[in-house]
Design a protein around this nucleic acid. Structure first.
Length: 395
DNA sequence: TCTGGGGTCCTAGGACCC
DNA sequence: TCTGGGGTCCTAGGACCC
């Protein structure tokens, strides 16, 4: 049975959020920067028109002609998360069901919806009216084709494209570069192009065995989906998280162990909070450190270590202890470090983790963690933390 | 001078089992 | 001339996504 998927995607999401809340930015080239104001992670339509590339470092913006007009904002992820919830709720209330795919995208189940195209157009208008965010919707018999339809929709004023029709679909495939296909990244695009595969249509027409041999089942799935065979279903249930990570680049390079230790301390406090907020426990932790990949003339070093926690826990104290031990194991002196991070692995919902033979849950510690979280929630995240994180933290 | 952060899945190969 | 067959589990690395 032929299915019908929709893919709704917010246009220039972070930049649009800024423009909604700061009306003076509307119509002006606006960009949003990553953490530490490192590089551009979102651009308004006007900024794209000026030629601001995605990912460009902040300091290179001034090389762009007309850069004086560009409005630059630091990212506000709390705001974007909140706006995302509003957009998703609006969409969800107008269609049978959705799968939230990322902060600014969702797949829509359009099966059995009469006049899906008109329906989608009205939905775009409603979302704009209710939230101020402009979205586009692509329709197709598979998720991959709905994604492709969405890219086409971004380029037209009606904001909706339907690729259910076979001729329309073939035309779209023929004019889509291979690297623009969902699931084909930079590496595969380069390799495929060397083999004479330049468009989505070239790829869809490749011999299936060849695709399977070269790219495995993932590539094969993409090829089948381009040919209209649906391999990816709408996922209604949000899957359990497998890992949680906090990592940052440093504003300047760091050499001293003590200085790195403060960062690891801080990251571990944050990621453990995230863990408890998600109702999860962890049994393994991974620490990584990295030099400056952009400065080839400096000594290059990066390393990571994964350590078992000896049983499921969400206790910041326990996790911090192991994290710092991990840092000792991978730290090398006299390296200019530029980035580090903490990843929690082997996650389970509280109460569902296989218990450890030798450790018992400690109710007093659990109360302590709950109290710390409540205080930080009530009085701000810097109120109380585990270990030596300077109160006057500048980073 | 200055270059993000947070995720997922698949595969190949090694260790180990009977 | 000649070295079994069939599994599982784990990990590192490579690819991808937003």
């Amino acid at each position: 049975m032929t299915q019908l998927f929709g893919l709704a995607d917010c246009n220039n999401f972070y930049a649009s959020c800024e423009q909604v809340f700061q009306p003076q930015l509307r119509g002006k080239p606006t960009v949003v920067l990553s953490n530490n104001d490192g590089c551009v992670i979102a651009r308004s339509a006007e900024a794209k028109a000026l030629g601001v590339p995605f990912g460009i470092p902040h300091f290179k913006i001034r090389n762009i002609p007309g850069f004086q007009k560009i409005q630059v904002r630091s990212a506000n992820f709390t705001l974007y998360g909140d706006m995302s919830s509003r957009v998703m709720a609006t969409i969800s209330s107008h269609v049978p069901s959705i799968e939230i795919y990322s902060i600014d995208e969702c797949f829509i189940d359009y099966n059995g919806v009469a006049h899906a195209l008109d329906n989608a157009k009205r939905l775009c208008e409603t979302v704009y009216k209710w939230t101020g965010i402009s979205i586009c919707i692509g329709l197709g018999p598979t998720k991959t084709l709905a994604k492709l339809a969405n890219q086409k929709a971004k380029k037209i004023t009606s904001k909706v494209v339907d690729l259910s029709n076979i001729d329309t679909c073939q035309a779209a495939l023929a004019e889509t570069e291979i690297g623009d296909v969902w699931g084909i990244g930079r590496r595969w695009a380069a390799r495929l192009q060397m083999q004479g595969i330049h468009t989505a249509q070239d790829f869809a027409r490749m011999d299936r065995r060849l695709v399977r041999n070269m790219m495995g089942v993932v590539g094969l799935r993409t090829a089948d989906e381009l040919n209209g065979t649906s391999c990816l279903n709408l996922e209604q249930l949000t899957p359990n998280k497998q890992s949680l990570c906090i990592s940052r680049s440093f504003e300047k390079t760091i050499r001293a162990h003590a200085e790195l230790e403060k960062r690891i301390h801080y990251f571990t406090n944050r990621v453990a909070e995230k863990l408890r907020r998600s109702g999860l426990v962890t049994s393994a932790i991974s620490i990584f450190v990295q030099g400056n990949l952009f400065r080839k003339e400096l000594p290059q070093y990066s390393n990571n270590v994964t350590i078992s926690l000896g049983g499921p826990t969400s206790d910041t104290g326990e996790i911090v202890k192991v994290a710092l031990y991990g840092l000792v194991k991978i730290y090398q002196p006299n390296i200019p470090y530029k980035k580090a991070g903490v990843i929690l692995l082997d996650l389970h919902r509280v109460g569902t983790a296989p218990p450890h033979l030798f450790t018992q849950p400690n109710p007093r510690r659990e109360t302590l963690m709950r109290t710390i979280d409540q205080l930080n929630h009530k009085f701000g995240s810097k109120t109380i933390s585990y270990g030596q994180i300077p109160q006057s933290r500048t980073w």
